[in-house]
Design a protein around this nucleic acid. Structure first.
Lengths: 219, 219
DNA sequence: TTTTATTTTTAGGCTTGTCTAAATATTTTA
DNA sequence: TAAAATATTTAGACAAGCCTAAAAATAAAA
C-alpha cells in the first residue's frame, strides 16, 4: 500500500496519541497534534477508514487497525534510525535532528531502512532515548525511572527524555547533559522539589520540572 | 524561497534538457521528461515565470533565470551527494541509487547538504561519473572521450556514463564494468563498429551503442 | 431531565497539480 | 505562400488536503 506523506503523518499522530491516551483518540486531539482543523481530520479519518487503516465509528473516536499500527511503527522506526544517523554520522545536536527526521521518515524504499540500520550498527535507541522498533515492529520499552525519583546520594545515567520540545533540548545542551551522562544527586530541596546534581564537569541545580522529564537508570 | 517537490522537479528537468539542447527548452520536451502532458507543463511554466525562476514568452520555450539555475544546480548537488552516500555507505549498486536519490534530493535543510558532503569526504563525482557541484554551484566537467573513440591496442579507465537508463546500468553490472574499471581495446569490427575489449577478468564484445555511452580517460 | 456547552460531522469552497478537449500559433510541406 | 501538420495554450474538470460556517450529536450543567 502506497500512502501519501500526509496519510503517514496522520497514522503516526494517532499512534503516539493512542499510546499516551489508551487507544481511542478524539478528532480534536489529532487536529491539535497536526495543527489542522477538526473538520480536516474527519475527512482524513474517513479516508483512512476506507483503506482499513483505522477503526472508526462516527462520534466515537479512532484507533489504528493492525495494518495501520504496523505502518505507524515502521514510520517511527525510520524516524528514529534517521535521528541516529544525523546525530552519530553527521554530528548534529540532539535538538536539531527531529525536524529533519520528520522529512526523512517519509522516504519510500523496501531496502533503505534495513541498510541504514545495518550501517548504523543496529542501534537500539534514538538520541532522545526512545527505543527503535526492529524489522518486525517489536519495541523494547525502557524502564520509567525519572531523575526526580532518584534518592539523595545515588548515581544514575541519563537514558532518555520525556518532553522532546525544542527549548527543553536546547536547555539540556546548555547544561551539557547528554544521553549517557552520569549524574549524582547531591541534595534535594523539599520546598520546591528542586535538586542539586553533580555531573562530571559541574554542579548544577535542577528544577522539578526538569527532573520529572529525564529518564535515568539507577546505578 | 520554498518550492514544492514538483516545482523542484520542473527546474531540474529544464536544467538538464537545456544543457543537452542549448538553452531554450520546449513544452513537449519537458512533458516527456516528466511524464506529464504539455498542457500541465504550460501551467507550471507560467507559475515558475511568475516566481522569476524561468524566462518565458508564449510559444517561445523556456530557459532558467539565474535564480532558477542556482536552485536547479543545488538539487543536482544534493542528488549526487545522496547517490554517493547510498553507494559508498549503504552499499547499494549503482543502478539502484538513482530512484532513491530522486526522493532524497528534496529534503529541505540549510545544513544537511554540507554536512553530508563533509561526511562523504568531499567527493567530486557521483557513481555515474557525473561531477558534483560545489557549495557555490561550480561544476567541473570531465572530458568527453567515449570508449568508441579509443584506438585499438590502447588502455583506458571508465570515468562515467552518458545514458543512465536502468537497463544500461544493469547491463554494465552484468559485464562487471564499474567506475574505475580499466579496459583494453583489443580489436574493432569495421562492419558494425563493435569492439573486443579486455577487462582485468574477462574478454568481452561491446557494441557501438554501448561504447558510445561510456566516458573514459585514455592511459 | 431539560437546557446549555462542547465536540464532531457535513456542506461548500479554495489551491495545487494533473487531465482532456478545443482553440490558437507556429512550422513544415507542397 | 497557402494548406496541412504539429506544437502550444486555454478552458473546464477532477482528486487531495485543507479551510470556514452551519448542522447534528454528545457531554455537561442546571
Amino acid at each position: 500500500m502506497l500512502l501519501s506523506q500526509t496519510e503517514e503523518n496522520y497514522l503516526k499522530a494517532i499512534y503516539s496519541l493512542a499510546y499516551a491516551n489508551s487507544n481511542k483518540v478524539s478528532t480534536t486531539l489529532i487536529s491539535e497534534e497536526l495543527n489542522t482543523k477538526a473538520s480536516s481530520v474527519t475527512d482524513m479519518i474517513q479516508k483512512l477508514a476506507e483503506k482499513d487503516l483505522v477503526h472508526y465509528k462516527k462520534y466515537q473516536g479512532v484507533s489504528l487497525t493492525e495494518i495501520g499500527q504496523k505502518i505507524a511503527v515502521e514510520i517511527v522506526r525510520k524516524h528514529r534510525l534517521w535521528e541516529v544517523f544525523l546525530l552519530n554520522k553527521l554530528h548534529y545536536n540532539w535538538d536539531e535532528v527531529h525536524e529533519l527526521a520528520e522529512q526523512l521518515e517519509h522516504i519510500k524504499s523496501n531496502t533503505l531502512t534495513d541498510k541504514l540500520e545495518a550501517f548504523l550498527e543496529f542501534p537500539t535507541h534514538d538520541p532522545h532515548g526512545d527505543p527503535i522498533p526492529d524489522r518486525e515492529g517489536n519495541i523494547k520499552h525502557h524502564n520509567n525511572t525519572m531523575l526526580s525519583s532518584v534518592e539523595t546520594g545515588k548515581f544514575c545515567i541519563v537514558i532518555g527524555i520525556k518532553d522532546s520540545s525544542d527549548p527543553f533540548l536546547k536547555f539540556l545542551d546548555k547544561l551539557q547533559i547528554q544521553l549517557g551522562s552520569t549524574l549524582k544527586v547531591v541534595s534535594k530541596e523539599p520546598f520546591d522539589n528542586s535538586m542539586l546534581v553533580e555531573t562530571t564537569t559541574a554542579s548544577i541545580s535542577i528544577s522539578n520540572q526538569i527532573s520529572k522529564n529525564l529518564f535515568v537508570k539507577k546505578l
